[in-house]
Design a protein around this nucleic acid. Structure first.
Length: 628
DNA sequence: TTAGTATGAC
């Protein structure tokens, strides 16, 4: 049997060694003595009472303290009592602590049993330390313990965590061969693994196969599938599964409905989400705060304020209390609308209601201050959150860095970046994008490029935005040649370039006087299957104008009106200025009339040009009236 | 006493 498990673990033999290589006792011990004294100062058998009364609300420190009392008690507590404690700590997701305590038991000569071995295997698997889990399995089997379906399901989870899905599937097959009956937990674990590997259709198919294999899917199974589907946007499929559940006499609960409602919200079917919300209420499923939070934040994102506030009063009326997520969503929405004052009022209100703001709340507010260039207050908020033991994360820092860069204080942005790294926080793509953009805008091309290359060495992968920022920065700082080299590489890479990239390059070429190259790239878009947008046309028109190729520019406007995007104010203004400079009053006034009929007006630089030309007599007053 | 899922906000 052991051999077959060894095969399942990609042919590797078990490594027989102590299942704990590095003791993490150090992470556990500091609270030891304090806890013991605080919680267990009474008789030495007090631990029995604690175990009897249940461990559900115990704190980690106290649980660890309890352990040290237990190992010192004589006679020794039973292994069942130890397993209850380990299980409690495992449920807190403190897997390293469980492993450490397990090792201490070993050292003290307390033998494990099937249950404690299973707990340890589970902990190693949850920490993606599959080889150590397999080592425990080997040891356990050597001692004569047969793995149970629980042991095997834990290992299955280990394979899934490591995305070793084919081995996970093979393990299930092996289990069946060996006479184990996979249960809902086994299948749910595998379904989760399939989603991790983007095999949604196989996951859905597995639900049907389960029944054939004599295992009816339950609410948890459906929950896993519906969640996986909604996260990828397969909402229709998720909805059909809900129907299937009802047919199979499994009543969907509010959590599963929340998943679908949120999926509908995220994938832009807000009204369908609202309909489903009404539907479940009719069915008698009571919505909870999560249901409302999904809908409210989604409505806010769409600017549907009255709908959002209607839902907010609805929830309060139904005595479903808004929580930190509700407030954070509202605060963020106000911040993004530029209504910082409202956001601050909500912040005060949540404090009055004794709802503790968390990192998301603070990040939104900091963003609000940054957006209004109120950097001092942003920093104050930053310090305030730290004073409340809410520690800034990479989003907090990225937000602040962006704020400083936008205010042309890129040095301070860099300093924040260094501070963040010192604290062990790793910048993500957004952080780097912000910094690189800031550096380019400050004209520090070298530092920007250096920061870009740093990304790779820190294992942060650049995205399309990064490249667009890089290309734009190089072009705007007179380094078209370098930009072209990067652009060439990009075109050969797997990355699918979007119109923004092409716009940047066309603009870069035109501004560097290489209008013909820009035109070449513009014409190549059709073959590439990339649709030019209004910016592409306007950039190209502007390029043609800069070479005084006005006929060609006019022709491009015509082409745009025939089969392109609608010209906007920028398109017209660009052409109008070109014709004015060219001294062609007739063409200019014709264009101005056309622009006005589209309800656009002259922009600042057109008005400035007209005013100048008015002063030196090249134009008369009627032009200024016409344009403004 | 042991295994899976776990909905919402930056």
């Amino acid at each position: 049997m052991m051999r077959s498990f060894a095969i399942a673990s990609s042919g590797k033999r078990f490594v027989h060694r102590s299942f704990l290589m590095r003791g993490s006792a150090a992470t556990v011990s500091p609270s030891f003595s304090i806890c013991r004294r605080r919680a267990f100062s009474g008789k030495s058998h007090d631990y029995r009472e604690i175990l009897r009364n249940g461990l559900q609300d115990i704190k980690l420190d106290d649980a660890v303290g309890l352990f040290s009392v237990m190992v010192q008690s004589r006679p020794r507590p039973s292994i069942i009592e130890f397993s209850k404690l380990l299980s409690t700590i495992a449920k807190m997701k403190k897997f390293d602590v469980v492993i450490s305590l397990g090792e201490q038991m070993q050292k003290l000569g307390i033998s494990h049993n099937l249950y404690t071995y299973n707990i340890l295997i589970n902990c190693f698997c949850r920490r993606s330390q599959l080889s150590l889990a397999l080592a425990v399995l080997g040891k356990m089997m050597k001692l004569g313990y047969e793995p149970s379906i629980v042991t095997l399901s834990s290992l299955l989870n280990g394979y899934c965590h490591l995305k070793r899905i084919s081995e996970a599937v093979a393990l299930v097959d092996q289990m069946v061969e060996m006479g184990y009956q996979p249960n809902t937990v086994t299948f749910t674990t595998l379904i989760h693994g399939l989603f991790l590997h983007n095999k949604a259709s196989e996951a859905v198919a597995l639900v049907d196969r389960m029944a054939v294999k004599g295992c009816q899917p339950n609410l948890v199974t459906y929950g896993a599938v519906v969640n996986g589907l909604c996260k990828r946007g397969d909402i229709d499929l998720a909805l059909s599964l809900l129907k299937k559940m009802e047919k199979g006499k499994i009543e969907p609960d509010v959590v599963i409905y929340n998943t679908v409602i949120d999926g509908l919200c995220k994938y832009k079917h807000v009204d369908d989400a609202l309909n489903l919300f009404t539907e479940i209420e009719i069915k008698g499923v009571r919505p909870n705060v999560v249901t409302y939070n999904s809908l409210i934040s989604c409505l806010c994102n769409y600017g549907r304020w009255s709908d959002a506030s209607r839902l907010l009063s609805d929830m309060i009326e139904k005595k479903i209390n808004p929580d930190v997520v509700t407030f954070s969503a509202l605060i963020d929405a106000f911040v993004k609308e530029g209504k910082l004052l409202e956001a601050e009022k909500l912040f005060d209100e949540m404090i009055q209601r004794s709802i503790a703001p968390d990192i998301v709340t603070y990040n939104s507010l900091i963003n609000g201050f940054c957006m209004h260039h109120r950097l001092d207050e942003a920093k104050q908020m930053f310090e305030f959150m730290v004073s409340k033991d809410c520690f800034p994360d990479v989003v907090t820092y990225s937000t602040l860095i962006k704020g400083f860069c936008k205010c042309k204080r890129v040095d301070e942005g860099m300093e924040l970046f260094r501070e963040m790294s010192r604290k062990g926080l790793v910048g993500n793509t957004v952080t780097y994008n912000t910094l690189i953009q800031g550096l380019f805008q400050a004209g520090d091309c070298d530092m920007a490029q250096e920061t870009f290359s740093q990304m790779d060495s820190f294992g942060v992968s650049p995205d399309l935005w990064t490249y667009n920022i890089l290309l734009d920065g190089l072009c705007n700082n007179g380094r078209l040649e370098k930009a072209l080299v990067v652009f060439e590489c990009l075109q050969k890479s797997k990355l699918e370039l979007d119109i923004f990239t092409y716009n940047i390059m066309i603009e870069g070429m035109c501004k560097a006087g290489k209008v013909e190259d820009g035109w070449g790239l513009f014409c190549s878009l059709r073959i590439k299957g990339v649709k030019p947008n209004v910016v592409t046309y306007t950039t190209m028109i502007s390029g043609l104008c800069s070479k005084r190729l006005l006929q060609e520019a006019d022709a491009l406007l015509k082409k745009m009106k025939e089969d392109g995007p609608l010209p906007d104010s920028g398109t017209y203004n660009t052409l109008i200025r070109a014709h004015l400079r060219d001294g062609d009053k007739a063409a200019s006034s014709e264009l101005i009339r056309e622009m006005r009929s589209c309800e656009f007006a002259g922009d600042a630089s057109t008005i400035a040009l007209v005013t100048n030309m008015l002063h030196d007599g090249r134009l008369d007053k009627s032009f200024l009236e016409m344009i403004s």
